[in-house]
Every structure is written in C-alpha cells, then in structure tokens.
Amino acid sequence: MSEDVIKAEGLTKIFNHNLVAVDHINFSVKQGEIFGFLGPNGAGKTTTINMLITVLKPTEGHAYILGKDIAKENMEVRNSIGVVPQEYTADEDLTGYENILLCADLYGIPREIAKRRAVELLELVELTAFKDKRVQTYSGGMRRRLELACGLINRPKLLFLDEPTLGLDVQTRTATWNYVRKLKKEYGMTLFMTTHYLEEADALCDRIAIIDHGKIIVTGTPEELKESLGGDIITLGIQKDVDITGLVKKIPHVKEVRKENGSYLIKSENGEVTAPLIIEALRKEGHVVTKLSLTKPTLNEVYLQYTGKSMRDAEESPEAVFAQRATMRRARK
C-alpha cells in the first residue's frame, strides 16, 4: 500500500438521497503532515471527518487510513486514530480524570496503562490541577484541552481535530496551536484538522484543501495558494492628478493596475522587487511618489478568491474582485 496516511478517492456522502454534503473528493495526507480542511459553514468538513473516522458510511467512493479501508477494516482504523470532535463531548457529570479513563476503556486499554497515560496527558494539556473537578466547572479552553487529552489516549498515529479552536479566546487559541505543533514535532503525529480561521490554517498547516459545497476547490501549501493569486498588492499615491496606468503596466512583473480613490492598486509578483522599479520609473517621468505600501496576499484573499463571490459569480469583472479584495483588506486594518 501507499505511504499516504489518508487517501480519499471519490469520497461522497449524500444525506436523505438529495443533500450532497461531500461530493467526490480526492486528496491524500502524508506521514507527519498537518493537513488543514478549510471551508465555510456547511461546506462538508465535519461530514468528511465523520466518514474518515468510520462514524458515517460513505455513499460512494473509498478512503484508506494507514492503508486500511475505512469501510471494510473499520476496527483497525478506529484503533489507530484519535478524534477531537467539534463539540464538547466530555461527560459534564464526571471529573476530567474520569473522562480520560472512560475514553481509555472504550479503547480497551488496561487500567494500569490507562492511569499512567491519563496522568501524562493531563500534564501535557496542563489540567493536572483540575483533574478531580467535575467537567461542568471547566472553562471552554479547559474542555477543549480535555477533549484533546481524550483523543490522545490510544497513542494515535493520526489525529483528527474538528475546529479545535472554535470559540476560544486568542490566548487559548495560541496555546492550542502550540500543543498541535508539539504533537507533530515530538510524536511525529499526522494531523488532519478543519478550521475556518484563516490565520490558523496559515500558521499551522503544511498543506490546505479548500472545500466548499462539498467539493475540494484547491489543494496546496499555504505559500502555493497565496502565489496562485498572482502576486502582491502595491498601493501607490502620486502628487499630480495624472493617469500613470499605462506607464506602470510596462514595468516587468506588473499584472494589473487600477485607480481607486486617488490611489493606484498594483498587482504584481515579487512586490518587494517591483516596488523600487515603479518608483524609479515614475521619478524618471517626473512624478513624485507620495505614499507606497506593499501587502502580501494572505489566505484571506485566497479563501475569498476560491469560495467567495469571485468564485460563485463567475460573471463578475476582475475589477470588482480586485476592489472587493481591497475593501476586505481595509476592513481589516
């Protein structure tokens, strides 16, 4: 079998014979990768995870986890994976420690080993001090960490994280990222996570698939995806009110120029190299550059490009898209 930790071939889920939640998706995840599934609400992220973790049966297609068929060898699959669900599933009436032991029992881990691991895991997620408190009294961040500990009880080779930072404050989110990085680095674990926080996907994931309406629209490293947008955005202002569009367009790497609110928005590859060339060219013609800024595209732009209006309304002009992206960027500032 292949070395892929996850391999999905035409994986499809149709609910009630008409709702296509996941539509013939193909992707693979390599050993030791953090693979991110990025998509808006209802895109089919959780449904994909539920099929991969053998909770839902695919309507069509196949998937292999560590070479095992999720449909035929589901017991083997269940043994080798860990799951941190989107919801808080820990039993509120039990303590954190009891919850971890309950998870251990579900994997049939002998009590002695389970107790040892529970102590280690509570240490890892920094819940040792609260282990005998009922989960009811835990904060959202603590509960998320407890879910993580439960998902690790069987020492999985592959961990599924469904929206691991949903609803957490910035601090707790950063802490969660650190756990995830630690799992990858120290345990060589492969991680499959879903999120709709773009900066999270950018910061954590080695590779990303953007999913919308049940279809994978694009797959690649965050860098590849950002480059696929066709470059950086240079915003430029000049003293006199004359049109320099034609002039700028002649400069190498420049792909697109637009005038908006008295400024020029220039799309270009390698913006940091192009910007000095633009200043140089303008000065030669006697123009005075009053302001200049350079914006590297973020996953935000990528996301919008692939799932946003620009994708759905294919008719829309490139200008409108450009403007929309600029607006987005301003809104963020």
Binding site: R78, I81, V83, P85, E87, T89
Partner: peptide, 13 residues
C-alpha cells in the same frame, strides 16, 4: 446532540 455518541462510534467499541 452533545456529540458523545459520535465520539464513542469512532472508538473500537
């Protein structure tokens, strides 16, 4: 509703 069932379904029980 709380997702506990799905979690149990993903374990080898």
């Amino acid at each position: 509703r709380l997702g506990f069932l799905n979690k149990v379904l993903s374990t080898p029980v």
